[in-house]
């Protein structure tokens, strides 16, 4: 029977969260079609593939394919996609899903190009049916808008937006009378040298300094209102006092005040701190989509009409250049008191 295939991503033998979320959504698709859910593992050693397959089992995966090839050990987007496309041609699945990550998007794009089928990316909901087009909902504008769409073509190619569904194991995994080992079928694709032209030739580790934006509990963000690169010094001081990190809006990056790695938003990083302190940030959609994960937002802005106040939990109306230094002073006093 035609299955629903999920392309899983792994890092050193561990499945990533986005893949488990994708499998959770894919399981619903498979159920709607009365089809088995099967997983595809690419570029692992055999023992790793075996371990991954067993880790997939609780998610309702009925079988895993291990796409193996000498040349597929490290990432090579076109070669990986050709492996998937050849498997698709042999097994004729109803749908192929990947996680909505950089790699998932790149792979599904190549798979789609090989098969001549479109891909619906960053889906949050999929209403599958056995015949005809599928109705689905996907993200637009980095999640600021939802799009209802109709997807034609066979097989259906989709990526699942990260955090759209929570990763959940299947409700009632059959435990008795079923083999505990998941069936793992090796599939060896035919690859030519030209498929391997694009591959990782080197990996460079980034130097790690301070608390990464994505992991910080407190983020102090600055925008147009900060006014200059020097203006960010006080935000850095405030962030340091609170054990947090500094971020910025696109205006700050485009003006050369901050490196792009500090940019929060649709084309930057997405943060999820306990508290986001937005200083001199108006609250443009592209920025706010990056702070959706923040538990609390405190906005400091001199314009009481700034849209940021509609999204913030706490607001202070005034000039950050006066407020922030005073705030730093007060916090220092408290810290000195605590130390004494």
């Amino acid at each position: 029977m035609s299955a629903v295939l999920g392309l899983v991503e792994h890092d050193q033998g561990k499945l990533n969260e986005a893949s488990l979320e994708m499998l959770t959504l894919a399981r619903g698709v498979a159920q709607a079609l009365n089809a088995p859910l099967e997983a595809v593992i690419i570029g692992a050693e055999e023992a790793q593939a075996r371990a991954l397959a067993d880790a997939l089992r609780p998610y309702g995966v009925a079988k895993a394919y291990w796409v193996r090839h000498e040349a597929l050990r490290d990432y090579a987007p076109l070669a990986w996609a050709k492996g998937v496309a050849q498997l698709v041609q042999q097994r004729q699945p109803k749908a192929v899903l990947a996680a909505g990550t950089d790699r998932g998007h790149e792979l599904i794009a190549h798979v789609g190009a090989q098969l001549g089928v479109v891909a619906a990316t960053n889906c949050v909901e999929v209403r599958a049916q056995a015949n005809g087009p599928w109705a689905l909902t996907r993200l637009r504008w980095g999640g600021s808008l939802l799009e209802d769409a109709e997807l034609k073509g066979e097989p259906k190619l989709l990526t699942v937006a990260p955090h759209a569904v929570a990763a959940e194991p299947a409700p009632s995994p059959a435990t008795e009378g079923v083999e505990l080992e998941l069936e793992l079928e090796a599939f060896t694709p035919e690859l030519s040298d030209s498929d391997l032209v694009v591959r990782v030739v080197e990996r460079v580790q980034a130097e790690r300094k301070g608390v990464p934006l994505t992991e910080a509990k407190v983020v102090v963000g600055g925008g147009r209102g900060v006014g200059s690169a020097e203006g960010f010094k006080m935000l850095e001081e405030l962030a340091a006092l609170l054990g947090g990190a500094v971020g910025c809006s696109r205006v700050a990056t485009n003006n050369g005040w901050r490196p792009h790695t500090d940019q929060i938003g649709q084309t930057g990083v997405q943060i999820a701190p306990d508290l986001y302190i937005a200083c001199g940030i108006s609250g443009a959609i592209q920025h706010m989509v990056g702070v959706k994960g923040a538990k609390r937002i405190l906005a400091i802005n001199k314009d009481p009409e700034a849209p940021i106040f509609q999204r913030a939990d706490y607001g202070v109306i005034g000039d950050l250049h006066e407020i922030v230094p005073k705030l730093i002073e007060e916090i220092k006093k408290i810290k000195a008191g605590q130390a004494g």
Binding site: D148, A149, E150, L151, K152, G153
Partner: peptide, 8 residues
């Protein structure tokens, strides 16, 4: 093959 029907 992919047709937008509505935005929300």
């Amino acid at each position: 093959q992919l047709v937008k029907t509505r935005l929300r």
